[in-house]
């Protein structure tokens, strides 16, 4: 197991390097720069600023000094928020984004798994068609449509839930979590339906029924574990996706999370901020993929056995 984790971590290094390199040069290739604002700034000032942030150095020199900073865990200073480092900004926004992603994840797993399992138990009946059509709709509907729609219905018309904000009102986390989680719920529903359908046709399910077990024991104890393996494998990338994909939802609901910094950084050509968040998200994606692989091994005794044997 140790070797498996180590080798996966080593594989992550070239992946991250490619991400860093591509982002580094792409943001600099985009027209405009961090200090080219509408307001005319005296050339001396621009020069001084560029010198301060090492933008006057040759490109390759900037690149290697950035890599050097990264190796020391430093994302560098932000260009647009003077006096604050990218590290501070990321750490400041992360808890909010993580909280949102966590709720969205709960929504996604709960709705998705329930719908998928329900559909799989009675395939090709209304109990299958209705949740699966809803899932298809959920996958197709982008969050910038879903969000305002939910706000319109539950916030404006019914006045049940707050329309935006974060942490001020008791119900204000519900709509963002649902908006962010829906797409993933739909995906999980389809995965768990497929997984459960396959498992429920296995011989060992028939064995369980032949033992006279109640149907809920057959489904929950004998079926679910195998049926949800595809879902577990998806959870890691999904959580990373929720974290990095939250900026649309954060913008709609005015949530002070990481995603909004990210979008603003892109508009502002805040090179270090863009780079920092991109690298941070890339690392998260790698990490969560690894985590979900480890969990997938852990719940499957056969794989667990093989890894222990060093195969």
């Amino acid at each position: 197991m140790g070797r498996f984790i180590l080798s996966r971590l080593l594989q992550a290094i070239p992946v991250l390097l490619v991400v860093i390199t591509a982002t580094f040069f792409l943001v600099r290739a985009a027209p405009g720069g961090p200090f080219s604002a509408e307001k005319i700034v005296p050339p001396e000032v621009v020069k001084a600023l560029e010198a301060r942030y090492k933008l006057d150095q040759p490109m390759w020199q900037q690149y290697f000094s950035y890599l050097n900073d990264l190796a020391h865990g430093e994302f560098g200073p932000s260009f647009r928020y003077p006096g604050r480092s990218v590290n501070e900004l990321i750490l400041g926004g992360l808890p909010t984004t993580a909280e949102l992603a966590f709720y969205a994840m709960l929504v996604a797993i709960f709705i998705g798994a329930c719908a998928g399992v329900m559909a799989a138990l009675k395939p090709n009946t209304p109990q299958d068609y209705i949740p699966m059509s809803a899932a298809m709709l959920g996958i197709c509907m982008p969050s910038f449509l879903m969000g305002p729609l939910l706000v319109l219905i539950f916030g404006v018309w019914l006045e049940w839930l707050p329309v935006s904000g974060w942490g001020d009102l008791p119900g204000d986390k519900i709509l963002p979590a649902i908006t962010l989680g829906t797409g993933y719920a739909a995906y999980i529903a389809r995965l768990s339906r497929g997984g459960m359908l396959e498992v429920m046709s296995q011989d060992y399910i028939r064995t369980a029924r032949a033992k006279g077990l109640p149907e809920w024991v057959v489904v929950l104890k004998h079926g679910l574990r195998g049926g949800l393996i595809p879902v577990v494998a998806f959870l890691g990338p999904a959580f990373a996706g929720l974290l990095s994909g939250s900026f649309v939802v954060e913008t709609i609901f005015q949530i002070p999370g990481l995603g909004r910094f990210y979008v603003q950084a892109a508009f502002n050509r805040d090179y270090t901020m863009i780079l920092g968040t991109t690298v941070f998200f890339a690392a998260l994606i790698v990490l969560f993929n690894l985590l979900s692989d480890i969990i997938a091994v852990w719940i499957n005794p056969k794989l667990r056995h093989q890894l222990r044997e060093g195969r």
Partner: peptide, 10 residues
């Protein structure tokens, strides 16, 4: 078939 009739996860 004893290979497939036992639940591999339990």
């Amino acid at each position: 078939d004893p290979m497939t009739s036992l639940n591999p996860y339990l």
